[in-house]
Computed example of a mutant assay.
Amino acid sequence: MTQRNPSQISDTAAASNSDDFITRVELTWVAKKIEHWIRFGRPSCEQLLHRSRKVVGFTPDTIFAFVRWASNDYGTIISRIDIVRAVGRAEVFQTLPFVRPGGEILLRIDGWPKVERVLHLIDAIEVMKLNPVDVAPDYWRHVHNRLTANQEPRAYTIEQHRAWLLRRRTQP
């Protein structure tokens, strides 16, 4: 029997506790069948499971866009985008397929026309030289609410972004 140094045991326990703070997203890519990918986000880790599958991890408060698309012999069966904020261990969260344990869902849109609209809004943000990860979470909620009501969302502006950055600095 191998004895372990107590410091090794606590290091192992600390490592498993820090893993609890990672939101894991399972990505799959089978061309023209199943395509799950991250449109934007800053993964903190990545694990290749198979040639067509991997898992990426996000630390708490990281925002990412998770796109899911699938088809069968008759056409598209799912087209969805979710913009999610990764949560910490003590935070409440909503569950989401392929996302463990879940996250705070800022935007949840399905149906290709609306998903495509969100993708265009993301592109417009990137044209302004902004990373969508840094966009105010309230903007993604606004886009979700407007598209759900079949209304046109307002464009994200540099002024809105500056206000968000100032507000974020003053929050505890």
Rank of each mutant, 00 (worst) to 15 (best):
R4L: 15
R4H: 15
N5W: 13
N5L: 13
P6Y: 10
S7C: 05
I9F: 04
I9L: 11
D11T: 06
S16Q: 12
N17Y: 13
S18E: 14
S18L: 14
D20E: 12
D20F: 14
F21R: 09
R24I: 04
V25Y: 05
V25F: 07
T28S: 14
T28N: 11
T28F: 10
K32H: 12
K32M: 09
K32C: 07
I34M: 07
E35I: 11
H36L: 08
H36K: 11
W37I: 07
W37C: 11
W37Y: 14
I38L: 15
I38F: 07
R39N: 11
R39Y: 09
F40Y: 13
F40M: 05
R42T: 13
S44T: 12
S44W: 03
E46Y: 08
L48P: 06
L49F: 05
L49P: 04
H50T: 06
R51T: 08
R53W: 05
R53K: 15
V56D: 00
G57C: 01
T59F: 11
T59V: 11
T59A: 15
P60A: 04
D61R: 15
D61E: 13
F64R: 02
A65M: 00
F66S: 00
F66H: 06
F66C: 00
V67D: 08
R68W: 07
W69T: 02
S71T: 10
N72A: 06
N72C: 07
D73I: 05
D73E: 12
G75K: 04
T76Y: 07
S79Q: 09
I81L: 05
I81A: 00
D82M: 08
I83Y: 01
I83F: 00
I83N: 02
I83D: 01
R85N: 03
V87Y: 03
V87T: 12
G88Q: 00
R89W: 10
A90P: 01
E91D: 15
E91F: 02
Q94K: 09
Q94I: 00
Q94L: 06
P97F: 05
P97L: 00
R100P: 01
R100L: 08
